[in-house]
């Protein structure tokens, strides 16, 4: 069984909230483990908000496309935009050794995503950033059904 959600949103933070609500409603209909749902939710927010805030020129309307597919055992999300080239895999890791008080308040989003996904692949193609995220195996982390005793 395969489930698919496609979201197209404008590059403004208000649109992010609306799209996140739609994603949340979609995720509720699936029987994925809590940890996988959380990871999808968080990756969506962190990557898309990053693109809106730093990738696109503020105030110049453009769009971001998100496709989430959930097949037996796998969840994959593809996020594409036409913003400035940005490879999150090449982004500097935040310095976690600094005491919290000495740290900059930002820069943790990509770090969280990297640690919560199973795999992440970036390519720049035809002026687009295309990021593909794979999430933990739903079958191995969720309750098993139909297994021989």
């Amino acid at each position: 069984m395969s489930e698919r959600l496609e979201l197209v949103l404008h590059n403004d933070i208000e649109a992010l909230g609306t799209a996140a609500a739609r994603l949340g409603a979609f995720l509720e209909t699936l029987t994925l483990p809590c940890a996988t749902i959380y990871a999808i939710d968080l990756a969506f927010e962190e990557i898309v908000s990053n693109t809106i805030k730093y990738g696109y020129v503020p105030g110049r309307p453009d769009r971001i496309e998100v496709v989430l597919t959930v097949d037996a055992g796998t969840a994959r999300m593809r996020i594409s935009d036409r913003a400035n080239a940005f490879d999150p895999l090449a982004a500097d890791a935040p310095d976690l050794n600094l005491s919290t008080e000495d740290r900059p308040v930002g820069g943790l989003g990509i770090h969280l995503v990297k640690n919560l996904v199973r795999g992440m692949e970036y390519r720049r193609d035809g002026g687009q950033n295309i990021l593909t995220l794979d999430f933990a195996d739903a079958e191995t982390t969720g309750p098993r059904t139909g297994e021989p005793a």
Partner: peptide, 16 residues
């Protein structure tokens, strides 16, 4: 039920 990096930012600012 959910905390993203924007939530972490709130915690860090509070500590500061």
């Amino acid at each position: 039920t959910y905390l993203s990096s924007m939530g972490l930012r709130v915690l860090i600012k509070t500590m500061k």
